[in-house]
Nucleic acid binder design. Sequence first.
DNA 1: CACAACATGTAAGATGTTACATGATTGA
DNA 2: TCAATCATGTAACATCTTACATGTTGTG
Lengths: 178, 178
Amino acid sequence: MALKFAVLGLLDQRPHYGYEIKQRFENSLGDIWSISYGQLYPTLRRLLESGHISKRVEPGQKAAEKNVYSITHTGHEIFQSWLEDSPKDGQYKVSVKDEFTLLFFFFNTLSTNRVLDILSKQLNRIGEQRSSYEKAFLDSEGNLDIYLRSIIRKGVIHLEAERQWLTEVIDTLSSNPD
Amino acid sequence: MALKFAVLGLLDQRPHYGYEIKQRFENSLGDIWSISYGQLYPTLRRLLESGHISKRVEPGQKAAEKNVYSITHTGHEIFQSWLEDSPKDGQYKVSVKDEFTLLFFFFNTLSTNRVLDILSKQLNRIGEQRSSYEKAFLDSEGNLDIYLRSIIRKGVIHLEAERQWLTEVIDTLSSNPD
DNA sequence: CACAACATGTAAGATGTTACATGATTGA
DNA sequence: TCAATCATGTAACATCTTACATGTTGTG
């Protein structure tokens, strides 16, 4: 669902070929949203079949021929209505559904010391991830679209929140031995 | 993947029947991790086929017969190794990959006023979600496992982070009209 | 009597992951 | 010449969502 609109959104800006779409994901949203060819090419095929995009073949300079896709009228329409209407429904929730949380749920079967060890290692990893996001955010000043920059900032803020949570839990467990 | 271990984890505590497993998800992790029968029953069948759990039929008091599942030796083994070994690999990243972020990425095509409107509505919704988590957290004092309570707290912290982010973006956009 | 809660599942379709398969060009 | 980058895709498998299908028990 989401990928379909992501692709339409990029094609609504200008025509792209498949490889290039993947590139744009890696470059601008890579840390946040990466896609595989196994997802991308079938999505392009489906959009083509449903008439939301059109295809033109261009000789390749460096490698194989490029399949350059452009958005059609109906494609533009459905992208616009996704962009404009879906915020009204407002189903967007913040979720903490991730595998680490699930693992954490079962930590009550481990010794407190073992848990503290795991949590402090996780704290370190999150700290590193945070630093790299922070750096990306600072480096992007002035040369990045304000929306894209805000997304990186969002990452920084949530990583900081995760650090805060881990620190809190470590404190709680340290002062409340089973 | 994750659901498989979640189910094994619950069965490692004591035997459960299908409906009961779903209940435990709703009650303890409902806001965070909800599952459907369309996921659960096939997962139970696969675990049974692979010998990680066993099944015993119990007459139902209120409705249909219950299929009570217990964990087997191999099931216990793979759950333990997931619990103990997977934190070492440490692939657990905090991700901001959600549909609202994708939508936001394309907001540069809308007018700033329209975006400000959408963001402030989202801020309200997140504020409500935060209040309900905060309430759940406060209500749980003293009567909930410390790990489960911490997961609710995690939700509160990330919702607060989301609020902070939205507020920041609203401020930035308000002071930088296109 | 209707409706909520109890209890089990299947089927179809969408989506995502991973590995495989192919071949050209560029630079060290 | 060898690896990296460019460029396209398919196939198998796993997973998730949604809707459908069935029947019982307790409560207002």
